[in-house]
Amino acid sequence: MADVAVVRSPDIKKQSGFAFIAASCVAVLYLPMLVVIAYSFNSANNLAAKWHGFTTSWYNVVLANGEFYDSAILSVIVAVAATLISTVLATAAALGTTRGRPWRGQGSAYLTITTPLVVPEIVTGISLLSFFAFLSTVTGIDLGIWKLILAHSAFCIPFAYLPIRARLEGMDTTLDNAAADLYATPWKTFRYVTLPLLVPGISSGAALAFIVSFDDFTITQLIAGPGETTLPLYIWGRIRRTLTPELNAMCTLLLLISLAFIVLSFVLSHRRRA
């Protein structure tokens, strides 16, 4: 090996201090979340940092809370609808923009699809607020919860699109060509060859779309009408009032939901390519 022969040069894999910095990063990133999780089991009656004893009663309080439950249902409805719409559109777009000769305008299409990634959330939020207000003054239609679903679908598209596209780029076209040589129609080739190979990419993209929609706060807060309270909006409302210990439990539940979908997406996208 090279590092045996080269004694003089410093070992490039070892930069003193980098391990410490990396470890500190992980500590800084996880410490606040772990504290919230730990204190969700603290039996103290207030949010003070003193440890009083272990209890799971805050979870009972949260789960018995009707408003929490209702906002969770709304969050799931919006996230599922947005995930379905964005994943279908993103899959089609990924098939249209990978493999084969780029068509004229493909670059602009790619830019358009990834636009939501570079627009700050606050600007997206107020632009949708203005847009829906404009729509309702001109047409008199109030879209209700569809405002949330349409908005979420739009900003979820790039998150679903990128993993699907990455998967498609990693797949070679030999099998598709073989299917075509055997007189499969384009639809049959897609249904029986491409789609099954693409499933991990699609699932990974869908999981990301779900989490991005489920966790969204800024945009939702600006466009949600009265009574349209998603889970992040509900927690926000509670934070603005008195700080109570069950907030820790609510935050922990939200983190666990994020975690489940992140790990799902990660495992799917890092599984060995077929």
Binding site: G96, T97, V119
Partner: peptide
């Protein structure tokens, strides 16, 4: 065909992200 596949996503983002801007 590939242009047609890409179109719905592009139109959706134009309608609900670009137009609002």
């Amino acid at each position: 065909r590939r242009r047609l596949l890409t179109l719905p996503a592009v139109l959706f983002i134009l309608a609900f992200a670009a137009l609002p801007l």
